[in-house]
């Protein structure tokens, strides 16, 4: 059974992706700082017969610890086939008021950490003769959004990373793609006013906001055999908000 690492897999979109991948037949290792009651509930369902949804606690902002984390995962789970780089922090605010440390930590977690994790997990895919990386970007990485300049910069960075890495490892049978969700109704957008969400829905071609399951389905598609000839793309899942 293919093993997939999902970062930020304890809640929100990451948990939705982890659950969808388990349902699709993968064995998933969710990485996050701490577990949640939602994850525990999902594990109870997923692990009823055999363990399929695992959790390992790790703070992904600890860049120096990532090599040891991957070593531990390899020892425990063997070869890892896929990686979903989902963990991110979405601090909003006017750039001129942001603290420098806040900017640095956001870039560290949203960009440096997934790149370093990919570097180490790629080895498992290289040795295994193939693999999948799916980077969770965002539509704000190419449309922009007031108050999300740093977050948008990190999400745009993931698109450049996706395209270059896809070219680098394609000949080894490893695909690298991005998904770019529109605004989702998750904890990350909990501070957004309902009227704002209504406006986003009204301005979208489908007159609604996408849901976690829509993005999770896109990730599952890119992870699967049906996407074997798709690499270096950005799959936008935004209910037509950016068309």
């Amino acid at each position: 059974m293919y093993k997939i690492v999902v970062t930020g897999g304890s809640r929100g979109l990451g948990l939705g992706i982890a659950v969808r991948l388990v349902e699709a037949g993968y064995e998933v290792i969710a990485i996050a700082r701490k577990s949640t009651k939602e994850l525990v509930a999902a594990q109870e369902v997923a692990n009823r017969d055999t363990p399929r949804l695992h959790f390992r606690a790790f703070d992904l902002s600890d860049i120096d610890g990532i090599a040891a984390l991957v070593k531990q995962l390899r020892a425990e789970f063997g070869k890892v086939y896929g990686l979903v780089n989902n963990a991110a922090v979405g601090t909003s605010g006017i750039l001129s008021n942001a603290r420098v440390e806040q900017i640095q930590s956001q870039i560290q977690l949203n960009t440096v950490s997934p790149i370093v994790l990919s570097k180490f997990l790629l080895r498992s895919m290289m040795a295994g003769g193939g693999g999948r990386i799916v980077n969770v970007s965002s539509i704000v990485g190419f449309t922009g959004y007031s108050g999300l300049s740093v977050y948008s910069a990190t999400k745009a960075a993931m698109i450049g990373f996706t395209k270059s890495l896809a070219r680098e490892v394609g000949q080894l049978g490893i695909t690298v793609n991005s998904v770019a969700p529109g605004f989702l109704d998750t904890e990350m957008t909990s501070e957004m006013e309902q009227s704002h969400k209504d406006t986003i829905a009204r301005r979208s071609a489908l007159r609604r906001m996408p849901e976690v399951i829509d993005v999770a389905n896109a990730v599952e598609f890119l992870m699967g055999e049906k996407a074997r000839n798709i690499t270096g793309i950005v799959l936008t899942v935004d209910a037509g908000n950016t068309v």
Partner: peptide, 12 residues
């Protein structure tokens, strides 16, 4: 790239 693959295999 071949050397990267070699290093990955040797680690295993």
């Amino acid at each position: 790239l071949c050397f990267a693959v070699l290093v990955a295999h040797l680690e295993d």
